[in-house]
Amino acid sequence: MRRLPIYLLLTLAALFFLLPLYIMLVTSFKTMPEIYNQGILALPRQFDLYAWRHAWSGATIGASNQGIHPFFINSFELVIPAVIISTAIGAINGYILTHWRFRGANIIFYLLLLGTVFPFQIILLPMAWVQGKLHIAGTLIPGLVMVHIIYGLAFTTLFFRNYYVSIPHDLVRAARVDGAGFFRIFWRVMLPLSTPIIMVTAIWQFTMIWNNFLFGVVFTNSDQQPVTVAINDLVDTVTSVHMWNVDMAAALIAAIPTLVVYLLAGKYFVRGLTGGAVKG
């Protein structure tokens, strides 16, 4: 009985966190007249799929009226190469920083650590200029992919470094005595032990890049934009009537991929969030 207040508070908090998701879901299945005539909390009378269909393939976004789906696909085309490449390079870097130590390794570590702290506003203007010179300004591939790989490397390298630090150096030394070289040790010794950290890093990168707005809005134009930028354009588009149901359906579509990953592999996501942090 003494514990009732604890459960009460936790349940109240849970309701607070679920409320926006709930109103997004119910609103997305309503018709506009229903939205005007009923409370925001009311369940839809019948589950109307118009808003979802319109958000997916009919809504006007910028100059296009194909809905959110081209941008949803853009985000996948962005995320897949950016996650794979930044994770792979991070793994090699982490391996080098922990098991091929050399003078200056600590300086490099701190250079990268600081790279995770700076506000990205500080690099936007030079990057825009460089992309212009490379004739890739405004492009999703390779422009935006390149930006996400470069500025993801500090995170992926630190994730792998902090993980590989705990792998005994004797394992590497033994492999070297057996004649294994740099790459063989990586493939045969490190990678087989790396599944958890690959999961953590890939899920972290997937979530961060998919959800990113700043790089997308600065570095891509019209049909090259990722879904987060498209959502904002859609919601911003001034029409005579604000289509709340379409807004909510579109926002949910943009949220589904990372939510699904979170529900399936949340444990790895939480490890990414708290991992580096708790150790300080």
Binding site: P20, L21, I23, N211, A255, T258, V270
Partner: peptide, 23 residues
């Protein structure tokens, strides 16, 4: 409870903005 408290972190800030603008 943890899953519920943490799911907003998995959602884009833009989506959060859209949802709260409505609410």
């Amino acid at each position: 409870f943890q899953v519920v408290f943490l799911y907003p972190m998995a959602i884009s800030a833009v989506v959060t903005g859209v949802a709260w603008r409505w609410l």
